[in-house]
Amino acid sequence: MKKIILGLMAGTLMTASANAASYQAQGCGLGSTLFTDGSNLVHQVLGATTNGLSGNNTFGMTSGTSNCELDGAGGQANAVFIKANKVALSNDIARGQGATLASLTRMYGCTNFNAVGSALQKNYKTIFSTQNAEAGQIDMSIRNVIEANKACI
């Protein structure tokens, strides 16, 4: 049984190396390099869990490694990240801090996490105006709040 599990893990690693893509729906980090199919729910869950357990997202974001591409202009990467992490991001914005909010702040190219967190927290109801707000709407609202409050330094 151990040999089968090790074989599966080795196969996954080889597949991940061969298929490594840029930003994944499960976030970036070790999990996105091991589980590359962002459209597969199982891969998303396994990738996000691996990212959380390994705790290397911050390093990946700051170094641009582990499928973490900094996209200061936003682009689709921010919307994909928001969609994949909507609940956690909503909770973090409500608190004005948290790992998901810090990752997104970095993706926007901001370095003043406290100013961004505070501005977004104060504008929570604007950002999440409806329960079913789309990722693109949330992204645009966040951009507008950051710009209006000059929070991105």
Rank of each mutant, 00 (worst) to 15 (best):
I82P: 02
T33H: 01
Q97P: 00
L46P: 02
F81L: 07
A18V: 14
A16W: 01
N51L: 07
K125V: 02
K150H: 13
T36W: 03
T12F: 02
E134F: 06
L13I: 15
A77E: 11
S22W: 13
L53E: 11
A18W: 13
I5D: 08
G98W: 01
A73S: 13
R106D: 10
T130Y: 13
A119R: 01
G52C: 00
L13K: 02
G75E: 03
D92E: 02
E147W: 08
I153R: 11
A148F: 04
A151F: 05
M107H: 06
I153D: 10
G11C: 12
T111D: 14
V42K: 12
I82A: 05
N40E: 06
M107G: 14
K122M: 12
Q44K: 11
N57C: 06
S90T: 12
G11W: 05
N123C: 09
N85W: 00
A20D: 10
F113G: 01
K125P: 01
Q97F: 01
A48V: 02
L70R: 13
L41T: 15
S118V: 04
C28Q: 11
G136W: 01
T50H: 01
T12I: 07
L104C: 10
L104G: 04
I127T: 12
A94L: 08
A25C: 01
G98M: 04
F35K: 03
T49I: 06
N123P: 06
L30D: 06
S103W: 01
A151V: 08
K2W: 12
S66K: 11
S54T: 15
R106C: 03
N132E: 13
G27I: 01
S141Q: 14
M9D: 01
G7F: 01
S118P: 00
V145C: 08
I146H: 03
L8P: 06
T50V: 14
A99T: 14
F113I: 07
D37M: 02
F128N: 10
G11A: 15
K83R: 11
K150F: 04
T111I: 05
I5Y: 14
Q121S: 15
F128M: 08
I138L: 09
A133C: 09
N112W: 03
G64R: 09
G117D: 08
L6P: 03
N67G: 05
T49M: 08
M9R: 10
F113M: 07
I82S: 07
A25R: 12
A102C: 00
R106F: 06
Q137F: 13
T111N: 15
M1H: 14
T58R: 11
Y108L: 03
S129Q: 09
N85F: 05
L41G: 03
C152F: 08
A119F: 05
E147T: 15
G52D: 10
T58P: 00
K2E: 10
C152P: 06
V145K: 02
V45I: 14
T49A: 10
G74T: 02
S39A: 14
S63Q: 13
A21Y: 10
S39Y: 07
E134M: 07
K125Y: 09
G31R: 03
A16T: 11
N67Y: 09
K2R: 10
N67H: 12
A21D: 11
I146S: 06
C28R: 04
N78F: 00
L120R: 04
